[in-house]
């Protein structure tokens, strides 16, 4: 299969879906400029022009509602937020309107709004430009929330989102945009609500989302090489719905669980995964669950602090050793991809 970058996969899914469905519009601030949201909207802009790739005013609050109104009348808006932190301004439209529309108005139809939110990662993006909001959205019934970790899923989940009738929030970590991977050529959807086993293992299950899937894979490789530990990596892919069966089956096999996430531990995805396993697979657990997440502070800017703040493969490997009761260290080292990354962002 041919290789694409994560960002290219998003762009390709967008173009193919827009070709198949003339009601899809891309809308967001500067989606039409030369940068095209890290290249993800550039192909659509070139192919369809400004009538379907719309630069919009700064109006997150209103536009969330405008998108719902448009979706209720036959359009499929694909709304892009260059930083998902700006989606806080759109919460009323997303949570009070889009998520509840089908239910609150008597199940007469949904509002197929798809919202992409990009998480800034590294380079001092700081407190209000690097938060991972998937856990926040994951709280609310009526939404689908996905966190693609691979180029194939970045494409496949977007395709599914643009073909469905449920509002979908897609949280994309900027740190993944340059990752390359095999991607199907056609507009083939990935089902929302099914996780995937990224790497099979027998000793410990590492459940992760988005960027932490990559960190978990790096940790698993190092654990195998340096400690002879066989870690199974589960990519949830979708956090709402969550593939509970896949997670519990893996824990049933390994008896140990580490959850790695870029959103905070409190009331977050990692809390949910731990609760699901406690409820459904408690007897399988041979040790307490460990969570690898950012610490309980806003994100700092100064780079040593930022390095300490962001959960990484070293922390995942450490947690895996701890739940297995093993001594020793596994130094995974820096991700080559991250090392090549420079500003200005």
């Amino acid at each position: 299969m041919r290789m694409l970058k994560y960002s290219e996969a998003i762009g390709e899914a967008t173009v193919q879906c827009m070709e198949a469905d003339p009601t899809i519009l891309v809308a967001g601030q500067s989606v039409d400029d030369h940068k095209g949201i890290y290249g993800t909207t550039t192909a659509a802009m070139r192919r369809f022009g400004a009538s379907r790739v719309l630069d919009i005013p700064n109006c997150e609050n209103a536009f969330a509602g405008i998108a719902v109104g448009a979706a209720s009348q036959g359009l499929r808006p694909l709304v892009v937020h260059t930083r998902d932190d700006f989606m806080f301004l759109a919460m009323d439209g997303i949570l009070n309107v889009a998520a509840k529309w089908r239910y609150m108005y008597g199940n007469k139809g949904g509002v197929p709004v798809v919202m992409r939110g990009v998480v800034g990662h590294g380079w001092g993006q700081g407190a209000t430009h690097s938060q991972s909001l998937h856990s926040v959205f994951g709280h609310f019934p009526g939404l689908h929330v996905v966190t693609p970790a691979s180029p194939a899923d970045a494409k496949g989940l977007l395709v599914t989102a643009l073909q469905g009738d449920t509002p979908v929030v897609i949280i994309e970590n900027r740190g993944l945009y340059e990752v390359e991977g095999e991607v199907p050529e056609g507009p083939v959807g990935v089902p929302i609500g099914r996780g995937r086993i990224v790497r099979e293992g027998t000793d410990v299950t590492i459940v992760a989302a988005s960027l932490m899937v990559r960190e978990a894979e790096r940790a698993a490789s190092a654990l195998a090489a340096l400690q002879g530990v066989s870690a199974e990596v589960v990519d949830v892919r979708s956090i709402r719905p969550l593939d509970e069966d896949l997670i519990c089956a893996s824990v049933a096999k390994t008896g140990h669980l580490v959850v790695a996430d870029t959103s905070w531990a409190r009331y977050g995805l990692s809390a949910e995964v731990a609760a699901v396993v406690a409820e459904r697979a408690f007897d399988s657990l041979r040790a307490p669950v460990r969570r690898v997440t950012p610490p309980d502070s806003p994100a700092p800017v100064s780079w040593p602090l930022e390095e300490a703040f962001n959960p990484n493969a070293d922390a995942v490997a450490r947690a895996a050793l701890e739940v297995l009761g093993l001594r020793g260290r596994v130094a995974v080292g820096e991700d080559e991809l991250a090392r090549g990354f420079v500003g200005p962002y």
């Binding site: 209103a62 509602g65 405008i66 719902v68 109104g69 209720s72 009348q73």
Partner: peptide, 8 residues
């Protein structure tokens, strides 16, 4: 906003 979107 929703009415604006529907009209749009």
């Amino acid at each position: 906003s929703v009415g604006t979107g529907a009209a749009w």
